[in-house]
Amino acid sequence: MYTSLAEVQVQREEELARNPISNPEVDVPLTPVEVLYQAMVPNLPQYMIALLKILLAAAPTSKAKTDSINIMADVLPEEMPMTVLQSMELGIDVNRHKEIIVKAVSGILLLLLKHFKLNHVYQFEFMSQHLVFANCIPLVLKFFNQNITAYMLVVFKSAPILKRTLKVRHAMMQLYVLKLLKMQTKYLGRQWRKSNMKTMSAIYQKVRHRLNDDWAFGNDLDARPWDFQAEECALRACVDRFNNRRYVDSKVI
Rank of each mutant, 00 (worst) to 15 (best):
K163H: 06
K186P: 03
P32C: 07
L90G: 03
A17R: 15
V35E: 13
V177G: 00
Q86L: 09
I100F: 13
E13V: 02
G91Y: 00
V207Q: 04
H209N: 13
N145P: 02
K63A: 14
K117A: 10
K163I: 09
Q184C: 08
I54P: 01
K194E: 13
K251M: 12
R241P: 02
A50E: 11
F242V: 01
V41K: 00
V168Q: 08
E15D: 14
I203P: 09
S68L: 12
A216T: 04
V177M: 03
Q11H: 11
Y187G: 03
T185K: 04
L5A: 10
I137G: 03
P29E: 05
I161V: 15
R190D: 14
L178V: 04
G91K: 05
F124S: 00
I92E: 15
K53L: 11
L36V: 06
Y204Q: 14
K63Y: 06
V154R: 14
K63R: 13
V155E: 11
L162D: 06
Q129V: 01
L111P: 02
K98H: 12
S128H: 04
D240I: 06
I253A: 08
V102D: 03
D214L: 08
N95S: 11
C233D: 15
L118I: 07
M127C: 11
I69H: 08
E78H: 09
Q9N: 05
T83F: 07
D93L: 14
R241Q: 13
L180F: 06
K163E: 15
V252W: 01
W215V: 00
V8S: 11
L16T: 10
T199M: 15
R208I: 12
P81W: 05
N196Q: 06
F228R: 09
M173D: 06
L110C: 09
V75F: 00
I203E: 00
C233E: 12
V121Q: 03
Y247K: 01
K157P: 01
K186V: 04
L16R: 14
I137A: 10
F116K: 05
E89C: 08
M197P: 02
H130P: 02
S87R: 14
F116L: 12
A223P: 00
L90M: 09
F126R: 12
L180I: 04
M200R: 03
T66H: 13
R241Y: 06
I49T: 13
M40S: 07
V102I: 04
A64N: 08
S22F: 05
N244D: 14
L51T: 02
T31L: 06
I100K: 14
P81V: 04
R236T: 04
S22P: 01
T3V: 15
N19T: 08
V8A: 10
S4K: 05
M1Y: 10
K53T: 14
L36F: 10
V121H: 03
G91V: 04
C238T: 11
V154Q: 13
C136F: 10
H97C: 03
L112F: 08
L211P: 01
M72D: 12
R224A: 07
V248W: 09
